[in-house]
Design a protein around this nucleic acid. Sequence first.
DNA 1: TTGTACGCGTTATCAA
DNA 2: TTGATAACGCGTACAA
Lengths: 333, 333
Amino acid sequence: MTVSRVLNRRPNVDDRTRAIVLKTAKKLGYRPNQIAQSLALNRTFTIGVVVPEISHSFFPEAIRGIEEVTYKAGYHLILTHSAETAERERDAIQMLESKRVDGILLSAAQDVQDDTIYRQLMKVGVPLVFFDRCVRGIGASCVSIDDEESARVITHHIIAHGYQRIGHLAGPLHLSVGRERLNGFKRALEESGMHCDESLILESGFQETGGYAAMMKLLDLPESRRPRAVVAINDPAAYGAIKAVLDRGLSVPGDVAVVGFSDDIRAPLMPVPLTTMRQPAYELGKAAAERLLAVVKGSVTSAEDVIVKTSLVLRSSCGCWDDGTYNPPGSLL
Amino acid sequence: MTVSRVLNRRPNVDDRTRAIVLKTAKKLGYRPNQIAQSLALNRTFTIGVVVPEISHSFFPEAIRGIEEVTYKAGYHLILTHSAETAERERDAIQMLESKRVDGILLSAAQDVQDDTIYRQLMKVGVPLVFFDRCVRGIGASCVSIDDEESARVITHHIIAHGYQRIGHLAGPLHLSVGRERLNGFKRALEESGMHCDESLILESGFQETGGYAAMMKLLDLPESRRPRAVVAINDPAAYGAIKAVLDRGLSVPGDVAVVGFSDDIRAPLMPVPLTTMRQPAYELGKAAAERLLAVVKGSVTSAEDVIVKTSLVLRSSCGCWDDGTYNPPGSLL
DNA sequence: TTGTACGCGTTATCAA
DNA sequence: TTGATAACGCGTACAA
């Protein structure tokens, strides 16, 4: 017991005994057993993180932000990877629960269809904060960009340049990110009094291959109905789209302008540098971790959305270098 | 106790009691407490991973490989990030030890100077396997590419194209990766009967900024002594070098040829696509994880190096498209 | 200031 | 097949 007091720097220990304990501990190579601590304290000082795809460039950045915050607060990270499948995500969540993590940061997998697993977590009382890919309405906080507003801004940018027939490579519509960006896209069209041609909206998913396939379909349309510009759900999808356009022997932005979402590391290096909405992954990770730690510590109880600001990064894929200062009316960003 | 037997699928339980237990467990929303399990079993089914820099593209890929193997084996990952500093690496190792992970996979931070911390780990008996950035001679297995041989191969490739005055942007020489690639570089020169000009060998570190600074110094040399080709320690350093050359108004490979090491995601997208030795990060991660699990399970006791094969990826930065089939005498790769 | 008894949730061991 | 008891290593509460 006295040993415990010394190691936890409690005040009421005689300096002499303290010295003896420390010396013997060092001599024996003593290492506190955090497993036993956790069992006694019912806390693990560990945060579980679930990402859909760790090799996505956005997520490593976000994880770094998370790590930065949790490290300083004395917490550790258990990292899991759902490989975009609901099944592995479930596995991960259950393991994290078994390991009694103090909280979970989660970005939903692409093919997640129902939210019962999240609801269970909330019911059991495991602090849960979503980041980037959120599931709303279950009482968990969500840290992300303002997807609808951001999509609205970049679409307005495209519109302002005079493009007609604008298409959208949408994300999975059962995820908020997919729905909200679609909403922002549509709202921009409406606000500009433009017709929204539903045949130019295709679900592409988050990957390059999906973007390629969806863009190919759009290019199969007769030229009069083919989109003159495309807003992609994210950068990888935009890469696929660019590739599709080039593979058809067409040019970006000459024949089809393409814009993305993320500003991932490859965006400026594309054959046609990509115009995109920059999502500050690192800051988003930090904000998510801070939010979760607040919930863990009990200083925050209500669910609340934290919005991280995006910014429009202009490159050549939209063909609008000239109007870089344009902002849609009443932009929040 | 009977409950424990049921949940662990032990055979000697009456089917009737088993059913009752399972039903009640579900009704109560029972979740096994792995913390208590770990305390009792003295195993955590958790592997600690220490990487120097998670946003490096090589490491997320490697982590994915690690995750793939450990996930299937029922192990979890605690991920830590040393931010290339010895201090944070030490912290990470100690925390992992406190958390009683079953083993540690580690890639050494750039500024690690001594290996006492690793030796301690070995002495205490924590299974330890290095990957990519190894520390040898302390009895831990090491999974990496054959750095010396790989550097030799790519240098021979450069030499075969007829370049004279070849420089090297070296990694930290207190890390095996730095020393070995330098050795391979020198050996290729020797084997070709070329003089090794020490003034063309500069330590650049692993980052783009270091590569840029080192290359700038080389470009400050009078043109007659300036290197005609440069072998960089890795791709980011090569990116910096390319940028430096272009910033000086010179061309790659026209004035200076540049080759890298990694084949990271940006390599084909550079203003001058980068010739590089491909390091299969995913496979390397898998191999490292497999090796560690073997050590954990006790089926392997001796330290042994596992070599993952590299391959030469030819792009335009070396100016040698034509001789893609060239291989130095006696190449292992 | 120091030490004792107990509990955290699980498994191993041995007895019923 | 089932159950009782001890043990894992620590912290809390309280007594000495």
